[in-house]
């Protein structure tokens, strides 16, 4: 006897477009925004908070190793990572979307027109300005996204470290990607780990 498998129809969802999108859609959108390669499943986003709190910007972010000081055997520059050694450079990549419509906001001219600025704030209060630009410069096809970097000094504290990313535009529109929960347990979004060399 074979059992008939019935597909369950998904009821028409209500609410704003943003409420009906999910994290995966944003990651896919982010990947599309930068050419389909970057922004893996390790990316983090504030889309839930943006939907719940009516934030103006959704930020999708991932963290990679920078081009300088990478300790041999710990991954190549530009490799996705959440663990870094002192002397290495943490690089944040990000793209933004409208919190109202879910639309990508990654056109360089539009970003300038909006006066949009993104800033990373580390757990220790240190702030890193992100810059929207072409990566790598003068390459074709052109790939645009936000990037900011932080060189880990020999005196930095080791252990888990959280960060937040804030978006602000000239009209007062904002978005904030924050990490909640216990940074010492493996939760999503993931905290960074800083280790001795």
């Amino acid at each position: 006897m074979t059992e008939e498998v019935k597909e369950i129809e998904t009821p028409e969802e209500e609410g704003s477009l943003l409420e009906n999108l999910n994290r995966r859609d944003f990651i896919k959108g982010a990947a599309a925004a930068v050419g389909g390669i970057a922004f893996s499943s390790l990316a983090v986003t504030n889309f839930k908070a943006a939907a719940a709190e009516g934030q103006d910007y959704v930020i999708v972010n991932e963290v990679v190793k920078g081009g300088g000081g990478v300790v041999q055997g710990t991954g190549a520059p530009c490799e996705l990572s959440s663990t870094f050694k002192k002397g290495e450079t943490v690089v944040w990549h990000a793209v933004t979307f409208s919190g109202k419509t879910g639309e990508k906001i990654n056109d360089h001219a539009e970003i300038q027109e909006r006066g949009l600025k993104l800033q990373v704030e580390l757990e220790n209060g240190e702030k890193i300005d992100m810059h929207h630009g072409e990566h790598p410069p003068d390459e074709t096809p052109k790939v645009y996204f936000w990037a900011g970097s932080w060189k880990i000094s020999p005196g930095a504290s080791t252990g888990k470290m959280t960060y937040s990313i804030t978006a602000k535009d000239k009209e007062g529109g904002t978005g904030k990607l924050e990490m909640f929960g216990d940074k010492n347990v493996e939760t999503f979004p993931r905290a960074l780990t800083i280790e001795e060399r």
């Binding site: 970057a38 081009g67 300088g68 000081g69 530009c78 790598p136």
Partner: peptide
């Protein structure tokens, strides 16, 4: 030279090219 490393890394990363010699 370190900046060049970043450009090389991004180029191979975004264009699926072989890992360069850094």
């Amino acid at each position: 030279r370190t900046y060049d490393n970043r450009l090389e890394a991004e180029k191979s990363y975004f264009h699926g090219e072989e890992e360069p010699d850094y």
